[in-house]
């Protein structure tokens, strides 16, 4: 079974040379730590930067240089700044190659819910609805089940949707799963996790074809 860093490490393998990548808040942010350093990748933060770098050293923080999580960051050589309309133009216009974000629920048809729990304080969708509505390559990083032990990979989302039919891949603490027209297709098992355990933790339709390999990190 993987921890949050393990999920991020596995997702980092999906990041290819020449990709522009948008990372959501939470586990997705950790992905940047595991991307191979022999490939060229630029991270986009939707508040208006391409070429986002790591956190600054203490004393070098700049209030005018933050990411979408409002954290102080740095800009790498080749970085650029732009306004919010241009930023979402990049996203809507499909110029960003890969979007990685967290979720509360994903349905077997690729629907995603990650912004609102009825009865709880709603903070807002931020840029999530724009990202999922436009990106063609969306990987969800999340735990396979919620704190109550219930599956987050469902036949149908129970929470208000963020987007419809948009998720392409899911990486959880238990498995790598592709979202196909016929349902969740199991691609890989996390180290030490059996196919049966994954089946038990998946409420939606799980397609298992042949031997399922253990993931290589």
């Amino acid at each position: 079974m993987l921890d949050k860093n393990g999920i991020a490490q596995r997702i980092a393998k999906e990041v290819k040379d020449g990709f522009y990548v948008n990372l959501g808040i939470g586990i997705p942010t950790l992905v940047a730590n595991f991307v191979r350093d022999d490939i060229a990748v630029e991270f986009q933060s939707e508040n208006g930067i391409l070429g986002m770098g790591p956190f600054p050293f203490e004393g070098e923080e700049d209030a005018d240089l933050i990411n979408a999580g409002k954290q102080t960051i740095t800009a790498l050589p080749g970085a650029s700044f732009f306004d919010s309309a241009t930023s979402f133009g990049m996203i809507r216009g499909k110029h960003v190659d890969l979007t990685i974000l967290g979720a509360m629920e994903v349905a077997e048809n690729g629907d995603i819910a990650n912004w609102k729990i009825p009865g709880k304080m709603v903070k807002g969708m931020g840029g999530a609805m724009d990202l999922v509505a436009s990106a063609e390559n969306i990987i969800v990083a999340m735990m396979h089940t919620n704190k109550a032990g219930d599956s987050k990979l469902l036949k149908k989302c129970s929470l208000p949707l963020t987007g419809v039919g948009c998720v392409t891949k899911i990486v959880t603490n238990l498995a790598v799963i592709e979202v196909t027209q016929n349902g969740f297709k199991l691609l890989e098992r996390a180290p030490g996790v059996s196919v049966e355990e994954i089946e038990k933790a998946t409420e939606g339709k799980l397609i298992i074809e042949g031997e399922i390999p253990e993931m290589v990190l």
């Binding site: 306004d83 919010s84 309309a85 840029g127 724009d130």
Partner: peptide, 21 residues
Amino acid sequence: MLSEELEVELTPQGTLAAKCQ
């Protein structure tokens, strides 16, 4: 917001930028 003193309209971030533009 919870006491309904304040009205809130939540809008996707890119849509918000586009509606201004």
